[in-house]
Simulated scan of single mutants.
Amino acid sequence: MSDLKLVIFDVDGTLVDSQAAIVGAMHAAFEAVNLPAPERAVLLSIVGLSLDQAMSRLAPALDPAGHARMVEAYKDAYHSHRVATGAASMPLYPGALEVLQELTAIDEVLLGVATGKSRRGLDAMIEVHGLERYFVTRQVADDHPSKPHPSMILTAMADTGVDRDATVMVGDTEFDMEMAAAAGVTGLGVSWGYHPPHLLTAAHTVLDRFDQLPARLRTIWKEPA
């Protein structure tokens, strides 16, 4: 049996705070179909879903062609905002980089990401923060069904050869925790993201600070502190 362990991170609302960019791009998406945008809390409630699923939930009366226009308008607006503002469009949460560094220094621990972002969006986030060396498996919306389908986690485990019992999914939304449950792995919620903690009912634990993560992982993996 492999001694390897895998920690998979969601991105938006977990590693980076991209809510300003997301909300702005959502407003552009609704403008593209001449509809008023819902309030901020509603827009953030769908973070984690793939864009086509998000638009279907937010604008259920539209046909697929309308949802497709919204998706393209969102992508264009998000990209423009990112180009204009760089790292400021998606700052890392406090403690995120330090924890990534700490975990990467442990030989048997591998890190990955599972995100509703596109490949282009994820690559841009990784590049702007200089995170290229941290993630050995990167699962994006381009290649998988939307969360909470377990495909992203199952593929990450297949990529790395890590068992379910040694895999942990870290995320801020109910979709992340439901995805973890569907894949049969431990889900760790975080309270600093876009879904309130009371919605993370499938989580093993909900963390309030990034620096709590290493100790919680040791507990889950039954390692000495």
Rank of each mutant, 00 (worst) to 15 (best):
M1E: 10
S2E: 11
D3I: 10
K5V: 02
L6Q: 00
V7N: 02
I8W: 02
I8L: 07
L15T: 01
L15R: 00
Q19G: 10
V23E: 07
A25H: 00
M26W: 09
R40V: 10
R40N: 11
L43Q: 02
I46W: 02
G48S: 01
Q53P: 09
S56A: 15
R57P: 07
P64C: 11
P64L: 07
H67I: 03
V71R: 04
K75N: 06
Y78D: 06
A84N: 10
L92Q: 05
P94G: 08
V99C: 08
Q101G: 12
E108T: 14
L110P: 04
L111V: 10
G112D: 06
A114K: 01
G116M: 08
R120T: 11
R120N: 11
L122S: 05
L122P: 01
D123F: 08
A124R: 08
V128H: 14
E132G: 15
E132N: 15
R133V: 15
Y134W: 13
K147E: 04
P150S: 09
R164I: 14
R164H: 15
V170H: 04
A183L: 06
G184I: 04
V185L: 08
G187N: 03
W192K: 05
H195Y: 03
P196E: 08
P196D: 11
P197I: 04
L199M: 14
R209N: 13
D211T: 09
Q212W: 07
P214D: 05
A215H: 08
E223C: 12
A225N: 11
A225F: 12
